[in-house]
């Protein structure tokens, strides 16, 4: 008799555990860990660390340009990201614009290669590093607007949410999974829904996250969760 009871309790425990697991884990948890994509061989090995990397911390004047990076803002070259849904790739003109005035590196092999393309007026066949399936539409402009323009976050931080720590890379490599659950995990966080945040006021908070009541945080900012509408990304 006791045998049966023991077993029943075990079974009950098992079911309760699996049931609560199943019922509670529909939503992915926020994941920020890296999920490295394949190493991509580019026609010219573009050194992101030199352009975007931090200046030599030991030498605040950065008198020796061969050390450390130049802290160029991502948007200096990637200008399309704030103006368009797709980030695109900077035109060759952009590279040349600076490099024709930097004689010191003019004879480095990569720069020589760069000028070969320029002289031939040929676009550099850069390889894709980040690619989403065609039925997924990510809007760069919107994210730059929110994080960089409205919330004044550093560009590198904002870009880094999805692109990783590019400033430490030579050639960029995909470092986040970019899968739907990964995207959604970020959108699960509460966002302010006020006019200052660029979001029209209205019942949107209610619609955004149907089941969650609007959270009024201590600073009085009304918050809701990100769009939960498939048609925002899949059209």
């Amino acid at each position: 008799m006791h045998r049966f009871l023991r077993l029943s309790f075990m079974l009950m425990g098992l079911l309760v555990a699996s049931g609560s697991y199943a019922a509670d884990t529909q939503k992915p948890t926020l994941t920020t860990e890296d999920d490295l994509g394949p190493q991509v061989t580019q026609p010219i090995e573009f050194p992101h660390y030199r352009h975007a990397g931090l200046k030599n911390p030991d030498d605040p004047t950065n008198s020796d340009p061969s050390k450390g990076g130049m802290e160029i803002d991502c948007q200096y070259c990637h200008t399309y990201a704030r103006r368009s849904a797709v980030a695109g790739i900077p035109p060759l003109q952009k590279c040349i614009g600076c490099h024709q005035n930097i004689e010191s590196v003019r004879n480095k092999p990569r720069i020589v290669e760069l000028f070969k393309y320029w002289d031939a007026k040929k676009a550099i066949p850069w390889k894709k590093v980040h690619d989403l399936p065609d039925f997924v539409r990510f809007n760069h402009e919107r994210h730059i607007k929110r994080f960089v323009e409205q919330q004044n976050r550093p560009t590198q931080e904002a870009c880094g949410y999805c692109h990783g720590d590019v400033k430490s890379m030579t050639v960029a490599r995909r470092s986040k999974s970019l899968a739907m659950g990964w995207c959604a995990s970020c959108h699960e966080k509460n966002h302010p829904v006020t006019a200052e945040g660029g979001t029209p006021i209205g019942n949107q908070a209610y619609w955004y996250k149907f089941q969650k009541p609007v959270v009024a945080s201590s600073d009085g900012v009304v918050k809701a969760q990100g769009p939960n509408d498939c048609w925002h990304c899949h059209k």
Partner: peptide, 8 residues
């Protein structure tokens, strides 16, 4: 089935 996309 539970999946990382959070869909059912």
């Amino acid at each position: 089935y539970p999946n990382d996309r959070g869909t059912w």
